[in-house]
Design a protein around this nucleic acid. Structure first.
Lengths: 240, 240
DNA sequence: CTCCATTTGTGCGTATGTATT
DNA sequence: GAATACATACGCACAAATGGA
């Protein structure tokens, strides 16, 4: 072993163990005391090593619970046709969506504007949670014009897929008209749903989807957990 | 004072002292023992606070010498009008870039990886601030391989434009290989530069630019103020 | 639900090493 | 070389959060 600080040796050792697959993403690492016993060092020395790994982003800790291997952020491509499942699947993860609520109510000003309707028209509102490998990574609210899709919610109940429900309502295909991205601090609702602390940075995506005739069919807002999701934009067509 | 760890209080206190100008760039801070006496805490508690400031980049330490203020409060302006981010300028506002500092130092692991170099190779680092209508909206750090562009910084001083400086270094054209977006909470450095509170959500863009041969020429990170910037991606322009 | 063992977070005290001045 | 100052390491104690009985 190179002549250097013990805590660096331990940090490298743990890094190698993770790289070798001895500890997989999300798994709990041995406790500080266990490492201290194994390496014959003080708990503080182990803490120094682990805190360096936390700083690197390789590990995260939860007081009272332990230290865990951090999952690589899932790279979620932004584009015309890419859907959530497809994106996470490409990244080699298991994606799932849970619908939390479905309601029908009058549209507020912004929702109406985005959908090209008048304020107060009835809209279906679907709220849900997206998970990757069981970890909640995004919270979304989608708004649909109720007049055009009277049976959308019924179809959603059974199909559990917006794309499939659209198909059942006669929309064979739809595309992303526009995506707007902003960073916001998590409020109590989002923080609870995403299992984060209030104030954590979230990536908010606002989008309008249109059918093949260019008619708006969905106005959606999604709050991505900045810790778990990284949006990627491919190529030179954007200059950010 | 908020109910929080003592070391955090001390870190914030020192940060404020630096911000107020009590300690200027390059100046030596009081010793750990002196801080410990002043605040009535153990030297280790002071060390914890200072190590957090080192991590933020606000302070650096030299064993045997002391702790010093790292940030340069005297920001010398190199350029006025330079090419600005397209996504900002197209909104019809007045954009400007200010170069805050230029340095050459060894690359860290991530910078080296992004540029396809080995860790520790010399890189030019340019840090700057982008404004829209005089309001700071983005903070950026660009990293270039020094071996390939030995005279880049000199050209930047006179040309005030990265594109022009590249041209002077023999790079006729370059393209955006990839853009990754994430949401992060502002640290002390970004918060100060962007005139925001620590913890405010920022949109972080990470990109790698390559020359026509596909060789990485620039690794850049930009922190956009979430309050002032909303990135838009036109669906018809992205083909993924 | 409470209770309790576990685990990380914070803080203090001490000692020694190593680089700077 | 001597004094100073940061770096590393050990030990002890308690706080705070977790998670299971």
């Amino acid at each position: 072993m190179a002549k250097q600080a013990i805590w660096k040796d331990i940090a490298e050792r743990i890094t190698r163990d993770i790289a070798k697959g001895h500890h997989k993403a999300g798994e709990k690492l041995p406790t500080e005391v266990a490492y201290g016993t194994r390496f014959g060092v003080n708990r503080h020395t182990v803490r120094h090593a682990i805190s360096a790994l936390v700083e690197e982003g390789l590990v995260y800790t939860r007081r009272g619970a332990g230290a865990f291997v951090a999952a690589d952020p899932v790279r979620y491509s932004v584009g015309k046709r890419v859907r959530f499942h497809q994106s996470v699947a490409e990244a080699g993860h298991q994606g799932s969506k849970e619908l939390l609520s479905m309601t029908t109510r009058p549209a507020d000003a912004e929702e109406a504007r985005a959908l090209g309707r008048r304020k107060g028209v009835q809209v279906h509102v679907v709220e849900g949670l997206a998970r990757v490998d069981e970890t909640p990574v995004a919270h979304f609210i989608s708004v649909f014009p109720a007049a055009r899709f009277p049976d959308l919610l019924a179809h959603l109940q059974t199909l559990n897929s917006i794309t499939a429900a659209f198909a059942a309502c006669g929309v064979q295909d739809y595309t992303r008209q526009e995506t707007r991205l902003a960073a916001v601090n998590a409020n109590a609702t989002s923080a609870t749903l995403l299992n984060l602390k209030v104030g954590t940075a979230l990536l908010r995506s606002t989008n309008v989807d249109v059918d093949l005739d260019g008619q708006p069919v969905e106005y959606g807002r999604t709050w991505f957990s900045g810790n778990h999701i990284e949006l990627t934009i491919d190529g030179s067509d954007t200059n950010i």
